[in-house]
Deep mutational scan, measured.
Amino acid sequence: MGFKLLSKLLVYLTASIMAIASPLAFSVDSSGEYPTVSEIPVGEVRLYQIADGVWSHIATQSFDGAVYPSNGLIVRDGDELLLIDTAWGAKNTAALLAEIEKQIGLPVTRAVSTHFHDDRVGGVDVLRAAGVATYASPSTRRLAEVEGNEIPTHSLEGLSSSGDAVRFGPVELFYPGAAHSTDNLIVYVPSASVLYGGCAIYELSRTSAGNVADADLAEWPTSIERIQQHYPEAQFVIPGHGLPGGLDLLKHTTNVVKAHTNRSVVE
């Protein structure tokens, strides 16, 4: 069995187990497998329904001669939608809004960016022009300005110390501490036991640490421990890039980060 097929099978099995364990909360999309990078042309966006009122959005972007996937989250909030992270750029984010209108038909009224990198804030200006209120932590807003990236308009308070959590509509926002970046936030959907790890969490097929220019490698494993301790009931975990899975993604990420750190020390 090929690795790609095995990865998709694991996603399907995880979703099936969740649907059985929580039949009222989960209505997993039966329309197909989780979209992969090879299936999404740059400039297009796919939506994948995880649970009743919960979707991931998947886009792709060219970077350094390669094409990478990027995940975000959409959560229903009454007759409105909360968006977590842009679709990595203005063109993708405009396509995301169009796809949401086509498939869901509810307005996106608020959006949260989970850290300051372009795959999370690139497209904020498109959201703002569409009347979406954009939010991020003060740290993310400051770092985005320093980096020359787009800056969300509103500040999220109460997320300055490791372990801080605040309720934001249908989700809980959690600051686990520094990891992929010093400002990275985690998003949890309690009604569906869905954990969105953003770039602080890796997919299972990833074996290298990737972009760690703004990471705190020493603190990252401790931050992941905080996530595990705060959300032990999480059933569906979405990484910032690639295929979702279960809580095993947290341990896998820790292993990859520690291996990278150990290699760096040896070198």
Rank of each mutant, 00 (worst) to 15 (best):
G2I: 06
L5C: 11
L6F: 08
K8V: 09
L9R: 08
L9G: 12
L10Q: 13
V11L: 09
L13S: 09
A15H: 05
I17Q: 05
M18C: 05
M18V: 07
A19C: 05
A21D: 09
A21R: 11
P23G: 09
P23D: 12
L24K: 06
A25Q: 10
A25M: 11
F26G: 08
D29A: 08
D29S: 10
S30I: 12
G32H: 15
Y34L: 09
T36L: 10
T36R: 09
V37K: 08
E39A: 10
I40T: 09
I40V: 10
P41G: 12
P41C: 14
P41H: 08
E44S: 13
V45C: 03
R46C: 06
L47G: 02
L47W: 02
Y48C: 12
Q49P: 14
Q49Y: 07
I50F: 05
A51I: 15
A51Q: 06
D52E: 08
D52R: 08
D52L: 11
D52T: 07
D52K: 08
G53Q: 11
G53H: 07
G53W: 11
V54F: 03
V54I: 13
H57T: 06
H57L: 02
I58E: 09
I58C: 11
Q61K: 14
S62Q: 14
F63N: 07
D64Y: 15
G65D: 07
A66M: 12
A66T: 10
A66F: 12
V67N: 10
P69F: 15
P69E: 10
S70P: 03
V75A: 09
V75F: 02
R76S: 11
D79M: 14
E80C: 14
E80R: 13
L81W: 01
L82D: 03
L83S: 02
L83F: 03
I84G: 02
T86A: 13
G89F: 02
A90K: 09
A90D: 12
A95W: 06
A95K: 09
A98I: 06
E99Y: 05
E99T: 06
I100P: 00
I100W: 02
E101V: 09
E101L: 14
I104Q: 01
L106Y: 06
V108G: 02
V108C: 01
A111G: 14
T114C: 00
H115F: 00
F116N: 04
H117W: 00
H117R: 01
D118K: 09
V121K: 00
G123D: 04
V124P: 04
D125N: 15
L127W: 01
A129Y: 15
A129E: 09
A129T: 10
A130D: 08
G131Y: 05
V132M: 04
T134E: 01
T134I: 05
T134S: 13
A136I: 03
P138I: 15
S139G: 11
T140Q: 03
T140V: 03
R141E: 02
R142K: 15
A144V: 12
E145P: 04
V146E: 11
V146A: 10
N149A: 12
E150F: 06
P152Q: 02
H154S: 13
S155Y: 15
L156M: 10
L156F: 11
E157S: 13
G158H: 15
S161Y: 06
S162F: 15
S162L: 12
G163K: 12
D164L: 07
D164Y: 09
A165K: 13
R167S: 08
R167I: 14
F168P: 04
P170K: 10
E172T: 13
E172V: 08
F174P: 02
F174S: 03
Y175E: 01
Y175P: 01
Y175C: 02
P176W: 00
P176S: 03
G177D: 03
H180W: 01
H180F: 00
D183P: 00
I186K: 00
V187T: 06
V187C: 02
Y188F: 10
Y188Q: 01
P190K: 05
P190D: 09
S191W: 08
S193M: 06
S193H: 05
V194P: 00
V194K: 03
L195V: 07
L195M: 11
L195K: 01
L195E: 00
Y196E: 00
A200R: 03
A200K: 02
E203V: 04
E203D: 04
T207C: 05
T207G: 11
S208E: 12
A209S: 13
G210N: 15
N211E: 13
A213L: 14
D214K: 09
D214E: 10
A215V: 11
A215Q: 12
D216V: 09
D216Q: 12
D216S: 13
L217A: 15
E219T: 11
T222I: 12
I224T: 04
R226P: 04
I227E: 01
Q229T: 06
Q235I: 04
Q235A: 06
V237H: 00
P239N: 01
P239M: 00
G240T: 01
H241G: 00
H241F: 00
H241D: 01
L243R: 12
G245A: 05
G246L: 04
L247Q: 07
D248G: 10
D248Y: 05
K251N: 07
K251Q: 15
K251G: 08
H252Y: 04
T253F: 01
N255V: 09
V256C: 04
A259K: 09
T261K: 07
N262L: 06
N262I: 06
R263K: 11
R263A: 07
S264E: 10
V265F: 05
V265K: 10
E267Y: 06
